[in-house]
Amino acid sequence: MAAQTNAFNAYKQNSVTTASPGELTLMLYNGCLKFLNKAKQAINEKNIERKNQYIQRSQAIIGELMSTLNMDFEISKQMLPLYEYMNHRLTEANLKNDLAIIDEVEGLVIEFRDTWKEVLKITRQQQFGSTQQV
Results as ranks from 00 to 15, higher is better:
residue 89 R to Y: 04
residue 59 Q to Y: 09
residue 91 T to S: 08
residue 22 G to T: 06
residue 9 N to K: 10
residue 96 K to Y: 10
residue 1 M to A: 11
residue 19 A to C: 03
residue 30 N to V: 08
residue 123 T to M: 11
residue 104 E to M: 00
residue 94 N to Q: 03
residue 41 Q to C: 12
residue 69 L to C: 11
residue 55 I to H: 07
residue 100 A to P: 05
residue 81 P to M: 01
residue 49 E to C: 07
residue 93 A to D: 04
residue 47 N to W: 05
residue 41 Q to E: 15
residue 21 P to T: 02
residue 103 D to Y: 00
residue 86 M to E: 14
residue 79 M to I: 14
residue 78 Q to S: 11
residue 66 M to H: 11
residue 32 C to K: 01
residue 71 M to T: 08
residue 34 K to T: 12
residue 2 A to H: 11
residue 62 I to S: 07
residue 28 L to A: 12
residue 4 Q to T: 03
residue 132 Q to T: 15
residue 26 L to K: 06
residue 33 L to K: 02
residue 22 G to M: 04
residue 59 Q to N: 11
residue 2 A to V: 09
residue 43 I to D: 07
residue 119 V to P: 03
residue 63 G to N: 07
residue 10 A to V: 11
residue 98 D to C: 05
residue 70 N to I: 02
residue 90 L to C: 03
residue 76 S to M: 01
residue 41 Q to W: 06
residue 93 A to V: 04
residue 10 A to T: 14
residue 56 Q to Y: 13
residue 66 M to S: 15
residue 64 E to V: 09
residue 76 S to P: 10
residue 72 D to M: 06
residue 107 G to C: 04
residue 108 L to P: 08
residue 56 Q to D: 14
residue 112 F to A: 11
residue 46 K to I: 10
residue 21 P to Q: 06
residue 13 Q to R: 13
residue 85 Y to P: 07
residue 125 Q to E: 15
residue 107 G to E: 10
residue 4 Q to A: 06
residue 122 I to S: 09
residue 78 Q to T: 09
residue 62 I to V: 07
residue 79 M to Q: 10
residue 68 T to M: 13
residue 60 A to C: 11
residue 23 E to Y: 06
residue 89 R to M: 11
residue 68 T to S: 15
residue 76 S to I: 08
residue 7 A to Q: 07
residue 128 F to Q: 14
residue 4 Q to E: 10
residue 53 Q to T: 14
residue 102 I to C: 01
residue 120 L to C: 14
residue 126 Q to S: 15
residue 131 T to F: 12
residue 98 D to K: 02
residue 119 V to N: 00
residue 115 T to V: 10
residue 80 L to N: 02
residue 90 L to S: 01
residue 92 E to N: 06
residue 16 V to M: 05
residue 68 T to E: 10
residue 21 P to W: 00
residue 102 I to R: 00
residue 48 I to R: 14
residue 57 R to M: 12
residue 95 L to I: 14
residue 131 T to H: 10
residue 24 L to A: 06
residue 20 S to K: 08
residue 32 C to Y: 03
residue 112 F to N: 08
residue 42 A to L: 04
